[in-house]
Design a protein around this nucleic acid. Structure first.
Lengths: 342, 342
DNA sequence: CGAGTTTTGACAACCGATTGCCAAAATGTG
DNA sequence: CACATTTTGGCAATCGGTTGTCAAAACTCG
């Protein structure tokens, strides 16, 4: 039952083994496998048979070395702890695998240092990089981008293709939602100072507030973690706000927990709106009103754009910037303004 | 301000560029960088300076080709959708990066086919593989394992190093917990038939039940997804059980939702015990009593074992099998048996 | 059936590193 | 100062593929 390989029993078969087995040159095997039309179909059939028999798998390193492409794409996320990034990872994984690419996953731990070093290392290891919520400065990113195909997610830099989740629009919907419920003192619980998403949302929100004559205070910054929710909740209560629009669901869920501890009822005493609609937002207590972002889709789109850049003429993807729409999902964490607080 | 490289401005510097810049042979550069003691310290200093100046980064592919090691480890997970695997990924990522390894992430989509093919492909691309909850048969895995360093998580196969989360022990604790609360009709909500975790837990549980003269019924199999919880909940209700020990938190959370829809109160009418203590288990409603498994730690241990196998003498890691203890975390989804149901 | 055209496949250089081998240089010894 | 010993560093082969070049073979057609 053993396969008569004729080579060392254990070592993976090389192109030379295949060539030897059917009595042709190695280059012919290479051609038969990569440019089928350049080789006689009888020869090709023999080669294919031999390859199958020897269980031949091309060596990715060797291929990369001579062709200059690794067929690998790195996905850099700021924090694997955050469920938000899970959805990105899932989306990119799916799409990359479909295209025959390998996914390198790197956690940059919210550090621009790590980000920079990683990009430098990756230059020869990956054919391209997807950068999610990068912390690096515009200039550094632009420099990286012309050494290596790059697509950013949730960060828009001139000249660099990007996928942006249009959360500001939905955040403004959230504002209207809260205003319609009678809230007049609203707090925006900001994310990290370095986060461009947070900045964009605040910009949109404060503009909209002014436009509508509403009072929206900015609190923060807060780290995008559940445990930050406690401090955020306390700050919100102290500010006298009756409703909060929160940077992300992680913080929002932490706030929910803290508010319960403090005996502040949601939404009776305080309304909370999250952002992202991560895993858990629908089954926390109360289920969270939040901005639903098709994060996984953003990951897929980013991959498509990146592959389009890596292989020009691969598909028609002239778009360099993609804005993914989001919407407000109203659940149970928002309600009418408390009666005693007009 | 531009660096006087002397080479083509854009292409990454190679070892030859460095050699040329300081007038030595490429091999000397290689030695200076990898076996510092073999090269005169003056020469070495010059080489290091030149490398820094040229921003030299060794080409990983070339290195892999000649050395035979890629400095990459693949992590195969059955389903990236599942938060359980996030913790694994986080643990492995952390530990791999610390050791200077790259992480290749592959979602096998719960398919033994994909698993098998991936393992075959990876043979030359990764120095080793961590397989989480593999679906492949023992024999196929054993065959893969002697072509490529392999560590499994939650699957114990003779001859293959493994990290196993000791959930059965804690599941039995859960049984005692429920018995002490007066429950007499208990259901085990089983995971997929192919899951060895599910099998081990059921084996331990049914043995313990017999031992204690308790009545535990097995229901299922159910897919490990939130949406399976609906069917599981209905099956549990129909079975007349007053308490359920559930394969994992995903299903348990789904059950919580479905039970609420049906007007079955948890824990008043029905107690639920989950497993894994995933993100969300503490803030769902009611917070889930569950078996807490240090999943991230399991990932780290797996990496340590794997690296020990890849680099013999790397550290002292003679252990081929690691059992990670777990414990029952009692929250609010379990309570006394309903009064009307003795 | 031979000249002209196309197809086919072998050879060899190359990608960027590693490493065994050996000669040149530096050092030590008598 | 000559000789033995140790360092140091260069040459060249190698890893497993890709690809440009070109001769031989197969084909077309008059």
């Amino acid at each position: 039952m053993t396969v008569p390989t004729g080579v060392s029993p254990d070592r993976p078969a090389t192109i030379h083994d295949v060539a030897a087995l059917c009595g042709v040159a190695a280059s012919t095997v290479s051609r038969a496998l990569s440019m089928p039309e350049r080789v006689n179909f009888r020869t090709r059939a023999r080669i294919e048979a031999a390859a199958a028999q020897l269980n031949y798998v091309p060596n990715a390193q060797a291929k990369a070395l001579s062709s200059g492409r690794t067929k690998a794409v790195a996905v850099l996320v700021a924090d694997i702890t955050n469920p938000f990034f899970f959805d990105i990872i899932r989306g990119t994984q799916l799409q990359l695998k479909a295209a025959g690419y390998t996914q390198l996953l790197v956690d940059t731990e919210e550090s621009d240092e790590v980000e920079a070093i990683t990009l430098e290392q990756l230059r020869q290891t990956a054919d391209g990089v997807i950068l999610t919520a990068p912390r690096l400065g515009d200039e550094a990113l632009a420099r990286a981008a012309d050494k290596l195909p790059l697509v950013t997610i949730n960060r828009d830099i001139p000249g660099i293709p990007s996928v942006v989740l249009d959360t500001p629009t939905a955040t403004n919907q959230a504002l209207d939602h809260l205003l319609s419920l009678g809230h007049e003192r609203i707090a925006f619980i900001a994310g990290p100072d370095g986060s461009s998403s947070s900045q964009r949302r605040w910009a949109a929100l404060s503009a909209a507030a002014q436009d509508r004559g509403a009072d929206v205070t900015r609190l923060g910054p807060f780290a995008p973690r559940t445990y930050s929710g406690a401090a955020a909740a306390d700050a919100a209560v102290h500010s006298g706000a009756t409703a909060c629009i929160v940077f992300n669901d992680l913080i929002a869920i932490g706030m929910l927990q803290r508010l319960r501890e403090r005996g502040v009822r949601v939404p009776t005493d305080m309304s909370i709106v999250g952002c992202d609609d991560i895993f858990g937002a629908d089954f926390c207590s109360p289920p969270l009103t939040t901005v639903t972002a098709p994060v996984e889709q953003a990951g897929r789109v980013a991959v498509t754009m990146l592959l389009g850049k890596i292989n020009p003429g691969y598909g028609v993807s002239p778009r360099r910037h993609s804005v993914v729409p989001t919407h407000l999902t109203i659940r149970a964490s928002t309600g009418p303004v408390p009666a005693d607080r007009p």
